[in-house]
């Protein structure tokens, strides 16, 4: 499950074990700049790739995409269909359509949703914040549960570890939508503690955020704990203890930072899990947000919305992972001068 594009072995079989990393290398900043530039370029490629794929997909789709776009009832009226075909440019050559599409994209024009009768940027803008607040809350909650759990159980008594492992196993195995349904059944329909649907305030955020967090907590704890256990087995932990450093300080001051580096290697997975989680959780709880809009749009084959959300979330995803990787380089001094 490792996923770390920077750790490919350099294919230099007999590379000399050159005189140790003795001399501090200059040009660390330049290397960093090169690395960031490369990653930004990759981000642009990804977003363009996503855009191209969705553009192509729309044209590959079986049946008449224009009929699908205007909806079943309107598709009965050939006049409306032809008008839509002209408006969307589907009657023009493919190359021209693609150029137009990229041009629109550059201007931030993501098209018009016939199903919602709104422009796609408006749809996205209206639904962005609920999703962002949900994912942030879910992430923070997962993190706040996982860190103390890992710090407390790493390398400790087998019974505690076993208990924590069991918890992790269950949380990675349990489907988020089922957790959501169970929480709804119990807390909303039985106890009436939280609103069943749509609640936008803080009380409406609780159950969705818990559901989302549970999906992350398992893997987070597991990776943090393994990272800490590995760090605690390292000689530097022994050195620290031999200096008279207490157990808690060894864990917090030394081992935790190594564990956090381990967790940042799955940042891509995390953001992906948050996005998927958002789709499911918003559907279960009937919460407004990009995820629910996307799910509905796919069901209704509302292509402009699908395209728009794909491009926007692809861009967000690459920016977030870039940010995390940047942070990773700040936390780990060994990477600062490393070549990109």
């Amino acid at each position: 499950m490792k996923h770390d594009p920077d750790s490919e072995p350099d294919a230099e079989p007999g590379a000399p074990s050159a005189g140790g990393p003795g001399a501090p290398r200059g040009g660390g900043r330049a290397a960093l700049a090169r690395w960031v530039a490369r990653r930004l370029l990759l981000a642009v490629v990804v977003v363009l790739g996503a855009a191209t794929v969705t553009f192509g997909a729309l044209r590959l789709t079986p049946g008449d995409p224009v009929k699908v776009m205007v909806g079943i009832s309107a598709a009965q009226n050939p006049e409306i269909v032809e008008q839509a075909r002209h408006e969307t440019g589907f009657d023009r050559p493919l190359a021209v359509q693609y150029a137009d599409f990229l041009g629109d994209l550059a201007r931030g024009d993501l098209g018009w949703s016939y199903q919602l009768q709104e422009s796609v940027p408006t749809v996205i803008g209206d639904n962005l914040w609920p999703t962002v607040s949900l994912t942030l809350a879910g992430f923070a909650l997962a993190f706040l549960i996982a860190v103390p759990l890992a710090v407390a159980t790493a390398g400790r008594r087998p019974a505690w570890r076993a208990l924590s492992s069991l918890l992790e196993l269950v949380t990675v195995s349990i489907p988020g939508f089922w957790v959501g349904l169970l929480l709804l059944t119990f807390f909303s329909f039985r106890l009436h503690l939280f609103p069943a649907t749509g609640g936008t305030g803080l009380s409406g955020l609780v159950l969705p955020a818990v559901t989302l967090a549970l999906g992350l907590v398992g893997l987070f704890t597991q990776i943090l704990r393994d990272g800490m256990a590995r760090a605690l087995d390292e000689p530097f932990a022994l050195s620290a203890r031999a200096r008279g450093t207490g157990e808690t300080a060894v864990r917090l001051r030394h081992a935790l930072r190594h564990a956090l580096i381990a967790i940042s290697t799955i940042s891509g997975w995390t953001v992906g899990a948050l996005l998927t989680g958002a789709v499911v959780v918003e559907t279960v709880f009937g919460r407004p947000g990009l995820g629910r809009v996307l799910a509905t749009a796919i069901q209704n084959r509302d292509f402009p919305v699908v395209t728009g959300i794909t491009i926007v979330s692809g861009a967000l995803f690459t920016l977030i992972t870039l940010g995390v990787d940047l942070l990773y380089r700040v936390v780990d001094p060994r990477l600062r001068e490393a070549p990109a």
Partner: peptide
């Protein structure tokens, strides 16, 4: 990989 797997799956289904 620079693209969330779930989004990829959703996109394929959408198409």
């Amino acid at each position: 990989l620079a693209f969330p797997g779930a989004l990829l799956a959703l996109l394929v289904v959408a198409v």
